[in-house]
């Protein structure tokens, strides 16, 4: 291995340590956001998922070297992302196709039934 490669690896090690510190901070922030009780459930979910996504980007980008990977890997991951998105869309679609009378989280049974009746009419 050349001296230049050694220099690159040593620079990468410093980057790994920074990423590690960022992951620890991200974990502390996620738990902290839970304990300060944000004003709405939607905001709590959004904050937790945003921090998790940043942490996932750091792990995938730097520890798994996706920041500087070959095109074929990006191709594989693009097709995975396509099918993963489709899978999640199926979930949303299935939720929209729930039978009449289904009670949704945060909604009263009456509201849910009227929503289902509205869907049945259209």
């Amino acid at each position: 291995m050349s001296g230049h490669d050694h220099h690159d690896i040593k620079a990468s090690v410093r980057r790994y340590v920074l990423v590690f510190v960022a992951l620890i901070v991200g974990t502390v922030l996620t738990v902290g956001a839970y304990y300060i009780h944000l004003p709405s459930v939607a905001l709590t979910v959004a904050v937790a998922m945003f921090i998790a996504s940043v942490k996932a980007f750091l792990v995938a980008g730097f520890f798994m070297h996706l920041i500087s990977e070959k095109k074929m890997i990006y191709g594989i991951l693009a097709s995975t992302a396509f099918f993963f998105t489709g899978l999640m869309y199926l979930t949303v679609w299935a939720h929209g196709q729930a039978p009449p009378g289904t009670v949704y989280l945060g909604a009263s049974p009456a509201a849910s039934q009227s929503e289902a009746a509205h869907k049945a009419q259209h």
Binding site: T27, T44, V59, A60
Partner: peptide, 18 residues
């Protein structure tokens, strides 16, 4: 191993906090 870590990054908030 990093993938296993990646999965846990989402599992932890989803199961423990939300």
């Amino acid at each position: 191993w990093h993938f296993v870590d990646l999965v846990w990054i989402f599992l932890f908030p989803v199961l423990y906090l939300l």
